[in-house]
């Protein structure tokens, strides 16, 4: 039985690929919108569409790549933490965010790396916390309701 109890995502080693792809898609689409508009804005009238295209062709994949690196590293550390701790917790994600931030800023020296790691950890903690809050907020619609009486037949035992 695959260890992951979360049936909405693939189990652990395979989810890294999913997350890489999903992050790239997010970055590329978001970057496409952002750089497209920026390119259109910075182009002369009549050349806005080509300008937008040029800008987004140049920059959106780069942003997608940056997002993919972040997401892929995060997912790798997440799976690593799950494997080491053998538990499914929000703490895995927070630690994974911490390490991702640290690794991605490692070139700047220990002080910068720790700052970036702290930011990554806090960011993930906020996301996890909000996730839990929203799950509980939307869970109210799953509350078991009393079935309407004429609809159910009285069971045979009565």
């Amino acid at each position: 039985m695959p260890r992951s109890s979360d049936h909405s995502r693939d189990p652990c080693p395979y989810v890294i690929f999913s997350d890489l792809g999903a992050s790239f898609a997010m970055g590329a689409i978001g970057g496409g919108v952002w750089y497209g508009i920026k390119g259109a804005k910075n182009s002369p009238r009549g050349e806005r569409f080509p300008g937008a295209l040029v800008s987004l062709k140049a920059r959106a994949p780069v942003l997608g790549g940056n997002f993919a690196v972040w997401g892929g590293l995060f997912s790798t550390f997440d799976c690593g933490m799950k494997g080491i701790r053998q538990k499914e917790d929000p703490w895995n994600s927070i630690a994974a965010g911490f390490f991702t931030g640290g690794v991605l800023a490692a070139r700047g020296g220990p002080k910068v790396a720790i700052t970036s790691a702290a930011i990554g950890g806090v960011f993930l903690a906020v996301i996890e916390g909000l996730g839990i809050v929203f799950t509980r907020a939307f869970a109210d619609q799953n509350r078991p309701m009393m079935p309407q009486l004429p609809d159910i037949a009285p069971p045979a035992s009565q």
Binding site: R136, A139, D140, R143, P144, M145, M146, P147, L149, I152, P154, P155, Q158
Partner: peptide, 14 residues
Amino acid sequence: IWDKLLPDPLPAPY
């Protein structure tokens, strides 16, 4: 999430 997870028991024959 709720203090009472199930609704009250149904009336008699049900």
